[in-house]
Structures are given as structure tokens and as C-alpha cells.
């Protein structure tokens, strides 16, 4: 009876996963199809659930690849990649070291400190945008500041991006801590009795064991940075410092000025341009993710 029921249940599994999956994908399919429209046709015709343009155009996709007339897409792309790589690198490093500290080292107030950090991670950040702007603008000795007043501080410089990287990644630390606690401490001791120092223990013995959870941390950080438009939009002005999402924000907001015809197909295509690299990042890492999360065996 079991054997008989097995196959239909698998078929059902395929059916549901694929069927619902396609529904989930639908907005993206719509975006891709809309990308083939010209501005005029998209504005003046009635758009159906599966919009097929009468006069399909590749202009939007060309603009995405070759750079549109007004936008230095290559620069935005480069900035997005650099920023994502930088933040991901630091997230991996800080999560791993932080996880090690809270999982292995023993010192007074450790649990309390960890709890405090964990709690701060959960609070809303909207309120911090204006204070952050003020802090950046008043950054001492930068941008013509005397001590706290005067110039632009670090606004509109690369420091806006660099300063964020080395900060502790608390959720990552939490996950590494959980994962490390499943590694028997004998491993550390064996390594030490073999003469390995902390440095070797950390990076040659413990780190390779944590690769799956590192993949998870890397991808969440990479995606978060890749999609973040607030930091570049708010704290920088120069075109040379913009990233893809912030450039799109500008583009769509300038196009919303009165009298301008909103170029939906163009905005949609640029959005796809942001999404596709993010998807590639995910495809690359996805098989590690489940493994990594399972390894943490989050107890709780």
C-alpha cells in the first residue's frame, strides 16, 4: 500500500512545486515581457496578463547592456559589484570571528553582551537615517570639517561604503555560534596539542567546517547589499558613486516629474538588470544554503 501511494504523492509534489512556483515567478515573467515594449506602446495600449508587444523592441535590453544614453551603467554596475564583494568579505570574516568568540571563548558578561547585540539587531532602522546623515556630515577631520563642523564630512565619498563593512554582523555571528557549538571542543584541543596556534586553529581547522553556513551568510549579505539603494542614494551624490538600484531610483523619480512620460518598460528592464545578477549569486550558492542551515541545528 505504501509503495503504491508513493508515486502519486511524488507526482503531486512535482505538480504543486512547479505550479505554485510558476505563479511565484509570474511577476518576473511579466517584467521580462514588458521589457520588449516601446514606451509609446506600453503607455497607449491596454496591457494584458501576458503582454505581447505588437512591435517588439530590444532597445531596453540594449540600454541595459550597453549603457543607456544618460546613464553610465557600467560605472553603476562596477560600484555595485565592488560594494557587494567588500561587504560580503567583511560579513564572512566578522561573523566567523564573532561566532568563535561567543561559542568558544569564556569571559565575564559574554552571554549578556551577546544578548544585547542580538536585541539591537532587531530594532527598526528607519529612525537612524537622518542621524546617520548628520554623523557622516560632521565626521571630524573629513571633507573640510574642523572638528565637528564645517564641510561635508564623509558624505559623497567612498568612506560611506567602506565604513559599514567591518561592523559586526550579528545575525551571522549568531548562526556561526550555533554551528560552532556543534563542533566538539576536542577538535580545538587536539589541534592545540599538535602545536597549532589560534590563528591556524581558526582558519585551517574550524573555518573549512563552517563553509556551508558561511555560504548562507555570504548570500544574504550579498543580496542585501546588492539591493540596497538607501545608502548610495542618501549619502552620496556623485554619479561615480552610484550603484544600480540607486541609479534606478533617481531615474524613476526624475521621470516622475510633471509632464514627463514615465518610461515603464525602461524602469522594468533596469530592475531586471538588478535582479538577474542577484539570481546568479543565489543559484551559485543555493545548494550550500540548506546544508548550512541544517548544520546550525538552531536550538531553540
Amino acid at each position: 500500500m505504501f509503495a503504491k501511494r508513493f508515486k502519486p504523492s511524488r507526482a503531486l509534489g512535482h505538480l504543486v512545486l512547479l505550479g505554485v512556483g510558476l505563479v511565484l515567478l509570474y511577476p518576473l515573467i511579466f517584467m521580462i515581457m514588458a521589457g520588449f515594449f516601446t514606451k509609446q506602446e506600453f503607455t497607449s495600449s491596454v496591457i494584458h496578463a501576458f503582454p505581447v508587444p505588437k512591435e517588439p523592441t530590444l532597445d531596453n535590453f540594449k540600454a541595459l547592456l550597453a549603457g543607456s544614453t544618460d546613464a553610465a551603467v557600467t560605472v553603476y554596475f562596477r560600484n555595485s559589484v565592488l560594494r557587494t564583494a567588500y561587504n560580503t568579505f567583511w560579513a564572512i570574516l566578522t561573523s566567523f570571528l564573532g561566532g568563535y568568540v561567543f561559542a568558544r571563548l569564556r569571559f565575564k558578561g559574554r552571554d549578556q553582551l551577546f544578548l544585547l547585540l542580538l536585541a539591537t539587531q532587531m530594532i527598526p532602522t528607519t529612525i537612524a537615517i537622518i542621524p546617520t546623515y548628520l554623523e557622516f556630515a560632521r565626521f571630524p577631520f573629513f571633507g573640510g570639517n574642523h572638528v565637528f563642523t564645517g564641510g561635508k564630512g564623509i558624505l559623497d565619498t567612498w568612506w560611506v561604503y567602506l565604513i559599514g563593512g567591518p561592523g559586526i554582523n550579528i545575525m551571522g555571528t549568531f548562526l556561526v555560534k550555533q554551528s560552532l557549538e556543534k563542533v566538539p571542543i576536542e577538535l580545538d584541543e587536539a589541534a592545540k596539542s599538535d602545536g597549532a596556534g589560534t590563528f591556524r586553529l581558526l582558519f585551517q581547522i574550524l573555518f573549512p567546517l563552517q563553509l556551508p553556513i558561511m555560504a548562507f551568510i555570504a548570500i544574504t549579505t550579498a543580496l542585501g547589499t546588492w539591493n540596497d539603494f538607501i545608502t548610495p542614494f542618501f549619502y552620496t551624490n556623485s554619479d561615480s558613486l552610484q550603484t544600480l538600484p540607486s541609479a534606478i531610483t533617481r531615474l524613476s523619480s526624475v521621470m516622475a516629474s510633471p509632464g514627463a512620460v514615465i518610461n515603464y518598460p525602461m524602469i522594468i528592464t533596469l530592475s531586471l538588470g538588478v535582479t538577474i545578477p542577484a539570481l546568479l549569486i543565489f543559484f551559485f550558492f543555493q545548494k550550500y544554503i540548506v546544508q548550512g542551515l541544517a548544520n546550525t541545528g538552531i536550538k531553540g
Partner: peptide, 24 residues
């Protein structure tokens, strides 16, 4: 693996872009 990826795709997209699509 393919299913996993498909289901996760919406999480990858940016909110600004996809809410615009919802509004359409």
C-alpha cells in the same frame, strides 16, 4: 534544486521594483 531556486527567487528581487509590478 530547481524548485528551491524558483521559490526563492521573489526574495531576491527588490521591493521597489516588484511593488511597481504589483501596482500595474
Amino acid at each position: 534544486g530547481v524548485y528551491r531556486s524558483i521559490w526563492y527567487i521573489p526574495a531576491v528581487t527588490s521591493t521597489v521594483a516588484t511593488t511597481q509590478i504589483f501596482n500595474l
